[in-house]
Amino acid sequence: MAKRIDVSDLNIYYGNFLAVENVTVSIEPRSITALIGPSGCGKSTFLRSLNRMHEVIPGARVEGKVVMDGQDLYAPDVDPVDVRQHIGMVFQRPNPFPTMSIYDNVAAGIRLNNKKMKRADLDTLVERSLRGANLWNEVKDRLDRPGAGLSGGQQQRLCIARAIAIEPDVLLMDEPCSALDPISTLAIEDLMTELKERFTIVIVTHNMQQAARVSEQTGFFNLSGVGQPGRLIEFNSTEKIFSNPDEKATEDYISGRFG
């Protein structure tokens, strides 16, 4: 299931503004790749370009290639809707559908792709997804209650359950713990370590300890000034980035000298 992604010479534009410049990187399957960097450096934009979510902003476009297992995601005949079915996403703030129950939230994506599924099969899938997100035991008695009634950390795990229910190849996480307390954060990090057995995970985080704790590979984004495009400064194994990075800027950032 998990697939590798090869990005080559990717430029991301909002209208005429070049937001991210010239990114070339390979993301390994069944591993966690962390993207770190100061605010506004384009790491979220880059993440959203991997499943074409940045296109919801009018005028957004890319040059270059994003290839997942031989398929260019930006080829002219590729529908962004299909891309997003294979590359799931978890957002910065938990966003379960407020009008749906916990059950319906998890089933939402399944129902989009497979409308005729039997209730029993759906039950099984919902339970498996919630177990996969380490949430089953906490919600199994109130599946018909609104998802918005859960705590922030539970809501975020509900969103993860919703994302993994459609069995994507890749899971993108955009600062998934920035709105959570430390205990909920720990629960999500444990979950990520379990999920990387099945999915390719890319996570954007402001929390460098988090990147060091969970990821195998780390990319450092930076920009040379306001209005300048963001660039991928260094991409290396997490161990190397946090002990002996190749670039001076990376070392300055992880040692807290700026950002």
């Binding site: 919801v56 703030r93 559908f97 407020p98 939402a108 989009l112 969103c159 994302a163």
Partner: peptide
């Protein structure tokens, strides 16, 4: 946030409207 949640699940624009916009 809710609209993007639907789109990120692979919803078309109409499905996004049905999942996130109309119920809200």
């Amino acid at each position: 946030l809710h609209r993007e949640a639907a789109l990120a699940l692979g919803a078309t624009r109409w499905e996004m409207i049905r999942m996130a916009v109309l119920p809200y």
